[in-house]
Write a protein that binds this DNA or RNA. Structure first.
Length: 352
DNA sequence: AATGCGGGGTC
DNA sequence: GACCCAGCATT
């Protein structure tokens, strides 16, 4: 029995019935792969169902507005995935006549498709004999061969990809790739791998050395830095209707093209009185009389690479502000139509 | 090669 | 609290 056969035999018996495994349509496989980038199956599955329902094919996705796509992506994070997928859907429809590229090299030319996703779609949908390398595969292979090069370095990725390709069953590359990932997800887990039930235990170098905990080798991460977000929740009445100012986030910062409130970011925590001085200085209230209605407690919003400490100051203006183009004035009901970061969504849920 | 980008589950 | 998840783009 060799490693490849043992793996495929295990997979046939133990694979989970995941919805995207019921199809080989490139569109649906692509959608599933993008949703699952840095995202667990449990977190992404509902999003997959909602997307397939709302946009059943690449044409319907291409016809949608970016805001619709982002709204559907809301809460999943890494929003560039949604923007890039929408961009690529339009490219596939307009430049490729709605037909997906059938090679990994062709797929990689599309925005949002890198080494992993290109190999995944090419092998699963088109049987291209190329191995994928994701977090699961890196863990399995690094343990199997006791690879002590960091898996997040270029040389490490190259070594691991070569090993994976050397094991690849070229006649069923899509199945093989999914089997490797499934083994990593279900058996060869990060903390305490279930080696006693692993079909590859007989050939595992890390297990032989009793050092599964030493692999994969990774370069240490940096600690998350703090950002202080002082949000201004500015409302006013126009034509008998209460409106709230929202801001579309542009530029290279987090949450690009999602909506939050006007915000004064500071280097350190700031008292409300000092913040109001800053607001005056920056003309945040448009020179109108205002009343502070509420100051929220501090919200802690933990991201992988950032720790956001947010405060929300609710202010009512007496008058109608002359707003710039980056701001929109919306009714409370319409806020729900906008794509919102999780932090803003949490705050709004607490307002009642 | 290093950094930014989200959010949530798990131990 | 630390880790990490079917990674990618940019610099």
């Amino acid at each position: 029995m060799n490693i490849t056969e043992s793996l495929l035999g295990w997979y046939a018996q133990n694979k989970r019935p995941l919805p995207w495994r019921e199809t080989r349509e490139p569109y649906k496989v692509w959608l599933s792969e993008v949703i699952l980038q840095q995202t667990r199956v449990a977190q992404g599955t509902d999003y997959y169902h909602r997307f397939v329902l709302a946009f059943p094919d690449v044409q319907s996705l291409a016809s949608a507005s970016e805001q619709e796509v982002l709204k559907l992506w809301q809460g999943l994070g890494y929003y560039s995935r949604a923007r890039n997928m929408h961009h690529s859907a339009k490219e596939i429809v307009e430049k490729h006549n709605g037909i997906f590229p059938s090679s990994a090299a062709g797929l990689k030319k599309l925005k949002g498709i890198g080494d992993y996703t290109a190999a995944a779609i090419a092998s699963i949908c088109f049987e291209e004999p190329t191995a994928v390398l994701d977090g699961n595969v890196a863990r399995v292979i690094s343990r199997l061969y006791a690879v002590d090069t960091a898996v997040d370095s270029n040389s490490g990725k190259s070594i691991l990809t070569d090993f994976a390709n050397s094991l690849l069953d070229v006649d069923q590359s899509g199945t093989f790739n999914q089997a490797m990932m499934e083994l990593g997800a279900l058996v060869c887990s990060p903390r305490t791998p279930a080696c006693y039930t692993c079909p590859l235990a007989f050939g595992c170098e890390a297990l032989k050395q009793n050092k599964t905990g030493d692999f994969p080798v990774k370069t240490p991460k940096k600690v998350a830095t703090v950002r202080y977000m002082n949000y201004l929740v500015i409302s006013f009445v126009q034509n008998g209707e209460e409106l709230v100012l929202m801001r579309k986030r542009t530029g290279k910062d987090i949450w690009k093209n999602l909506y939050d409130f006007p915000c004064i970011e500071t280097e350190n925590s700031i008292e409300t009185n000092d913040l109001l001085v800053l607001c005056e200085k920056q003309d945040a209230f448009f020179g109108l009389p205002y009343v502070v209605k509420q100051v929220s407690p501090e919200y802690i919003h933990q991201l992988s690479h950032r720790r956001l400490l947010a405060k929300f100051i609710k202010v009512e203006l007496d008058g109608i502000p002359a707003i710039s183009s980056s701001l929109v004035a919306v009714t409370k009901e319409k806020i729900a139509d906008l794509p919102l970061p999780r932090l803003i969504d949490r705050y709004l849920a607490n307002l009642i």
